[in-house]
Design a protein around this nucleic acid. Sequence first.
DNA 1: CTAGGGTTAG
Length: 600
Amino acid sequence: MQVSAPIRAPAWVSTRRLFEQKLSDLHKCNNLSQLKQVYALIYKSNLHQDPFVTPKLVTAFSLCRQMPCAVKAFNQVHEPNVHLYNTMIRAHVHNSQPAQAFAIFFLMQSSGVFPDNFTYPFLLKACSGQNDFSLVKMIHTHIQKYGFCSDIYVPNALIDSYSRCGLVGVGAAKKVFSVMDDKDVVSWNTMIGGLVKANRLNEARQLFDEMPERDMVSWNTILDGYAKAGQLNDAFELFEKMPERNVVSWSTMLTGYSKAGDMEMTRMLFDKMPVKNMVSWTIIIAGYAEKGLAKEATDLYEQMEEAGYRPDDGAIISILAACAESGLLWLGKRVHQSINKNRHQCSILIENALIDMYSKCGSLSKALSIFNGMGKKDLVSWNAMIHGLAMHGHGSKALQLFSKMKQEGFAPDKVTFVGVLCACTHGGFVDEGIQYFYTMERDYRVPPEIEHYGCIIDLLGRGGRLQEAFRLVRTMPVEPNVIIWGALLGACRLYNAVELAQEVLEHLVKLEPQNAGNYSMLSNIYAATGNWDSVADMRLRMKNTGNEKPSGASLIELEDGVHEFTVKNTLHPASDKIYHMVDGLSHHIKKVGYFPDAFY
DNA sequence: CTAGGGTTAG
């Protein structure tokens, strides 16, 4: 009789145990290295053809954002069944690859596998965000042909996708909704949400009142509609009537009051809410920050961290964006500190938000160091940095970065070109700007939009090429707005082009009759050319226009708070000193041959 | 034996 000696389990045994334990809930595995081990074992054990294993594997890879691995696992199956195809479509949708989701759908059809009631809700999700009515209609036709509307998930998904396709879409959604035999609470909520998105609040409310049963989501949807539309009294009335409120209801109210600029009410609700979460803290902190209320925002940020909250990606991005908007460098730095403390690495989204925050808050060197330290950059990173350099007057550096971006294989988009044209304006590169403008569509298939026309007309005008600027305004395919006419008027002022300015003023008066600034611009031109009678005429016209609209401001945060600067602002306590300095500087740069008002 | 929908911050 043989006695077996006790043996130590070899290393693979533990992996094996992990494998067996993992296989049943493999789709929930979010640890990439474990997942890859399990995948290797699946492959070795020839289990990758098992129709119950591969969908779980695909789902797990999709949750870890490893689509190449998911595709590989999928491709190893010889004859995928409908469930695996569905899983693959969903994986692509969850990873924002709608085109690939459709490709799988077409592959499935050409392989002779028929779609089922699960296929269409996934496919319809792939359409959301595309705003493509005819695509949704095409899917709807398929659904009608195969008769999958008996499964309530299918018409519910149709209502959702249709209502994301503008006005025509909402009409189609209403049709689907109205012919449904058994509507459940999700059908109602989706339809109400669709009407809210289309700004058809009265219809949404009517439906809400007709609902047989209303759970929390229905109330929150209609509440959100009122809050977004600024109908805060209606929102508040409903909020008080609700049988119960959850953290979403409270957050919706916070957003409504914060967006309306009523931070007192926002704060009152925030202090009263029984349960707070990351979202509610984010809303109020970003709200204060957007309005430049540095102390309130920073104090609450500290309180949030003291209460044990670690800001997530969404919180960080919202708060940084708010800091960028109003120049709160100090809070922006504070958020950056928490990022460094709490994370070993941060996402591209956060790094992009930091670049934007630092450059808009005046700290170009910090923005550059984030940009240069990034492991991976995306188009947004390049765009933010190009724009940042341009804004800080480094026109040629911005253009150098633009060529580098192209060398690294990034295709510029419309945002890139706004930055590039802006760089030309700040650097005074008129001919280069025109060149870039013409390559946009020809070489990069980026058709110029009104912002680009605004930039190029501003550039031509500042360069003294008024006739060309006017010709472009007359021939461009978009209707000129106040920014375009305003740029022209500014150029006329710069070169004292009286007659052109008179023409421009008439256009501006039609678009914004209340803006006295336009008259004063023409009045200045008359004054500069010694036409005092016309100056008096302009003053008279100005008197009858009423209020001047608030002018644009630059903000900078110093040790003693945020300082605001506007054109001709004499309210700042140090304005005498400031203007003295500016005059001195203008004198100096004129002496060295610079034309100070043309390019900035 | 697997799976899917509606609301709040970004």
